[in-house]
């Protein structure tokens, strides 16, 4: 179960995620992003503090948004104070790729 809360503030958008971001729930996030006009967005911030579970598909999805926005000179940020989720991001190196 993934709860997606989009806090619209174009050109800077914040999406708060709660629950589980995985192969089964990623579609909900995708719908939310699709509703946004990425061409008008400068930055997209995902708040991950409410996440309990994430899988590699979910992480791949976040990296995918980063790539999409990077092509439009936008950026993706991750907000997170969940140490365990942060450990996963660190092991995979997600923050490194978002900095690139």
């Amino acid at each position: 179960m993934l709860r997606v809360k989009v806090i619209k503030g174009v050109p800077e958008v914040v999406i708060a995620l709660e629950g589980s971001l995985d192969m089964g729930t990623g579609e909900a996030l995708q719908r939310a992003v699709d509703e946004l006009n990425l061409n008008r967005i400068h930055s997209l911030t995902f708040s991950l503090s409410g996440l309990e579970i994430i899988d590699s598909t979910g992480i791949g999805q976040l990296i995918g948004y980063h790539r999409a926005l990077s092509q439009r000179n936008g950026r993706v940020y991750l907000e997170n104070d969940n140490a365990e989720i942060e450990e996963i991001l660190g092991l995979i190196g997600v923050r490194e790729i978002l900095r690139s």
Binding site: M23, I53, D55, S56, I63, E84, G93, I97
Partner: peptide
């Protein structure tokens, strides 16, 4: 890791996560 679901890997194979790690870290 307890917070990482690996259910998707049983479908996609470990290669997906390996590719993510190789790209990112």
């Amino acid at each position: 890791h307890p917070r990482l679901s690996v259910a998707d890997l049983s479908v996609r194979g470990d290669g997906y996560l390996i590719k993510l790690i190789l790209e990112a870290r």
